[in-house]
Amino acid sequence: MDYTLILFIILAAVAVASAAGLLVSRNTVYAALFLVLNFATVAVFYLLLGAPFIALAQVTIYAGAIMVLFLFVIMLLGADKLPKAKGLPWQRPLAIVLAAVLLVEAGFLLFQRLQLTANLASPEASINTTEALQSLAKTLFSQYLLPFEVTSVLLLVAMIGVIVLTKKEKGEQEA
């Protein structure tokens, strides 16, 4: 029994548990915290998979920036509980059934059809982390330079959009 395997199992259990917590928690703040936990476990998965840059980005962007934004909005709007749902009585059972079916389908796909039971190509140890990072950076800034730049434009547009959306119109106060 390897410690990596034990680590994987524990991390997988934490990830699923935190996701379940997200699903069931009535309090929005708790939900956000469950998600942060989930993101953190996923970041460890990335480290296990030999992707330290992505793992750090995950922690920085998701667990840091995005979740702070979420919490900020939760605080802004008041993390109140919603009243009990009136309509759509069949929504919940149907959603559960469908999610289950999806899961079954995916599992079937995974283990029966694709036969992806093969081990990962090379162990974490054999990966030269520095080289891998360099290769990633090369690829990103050579082959994917244009998409990278477009991403910056996307972020700019999103920023302007948010400003325009949330900006109060002139005279709206009086009205």
Partner: peptide, 14 residues
């Protein structure tokens, strides 16, 4: 209801 639409999307995926 947005959620119904989302349900339909999931149904389509399934």
């Amino acid at each position: 209801f947005v959620r119904s639409y989302a349900l339909a999307v999931l149904l389509g995926v399934v």
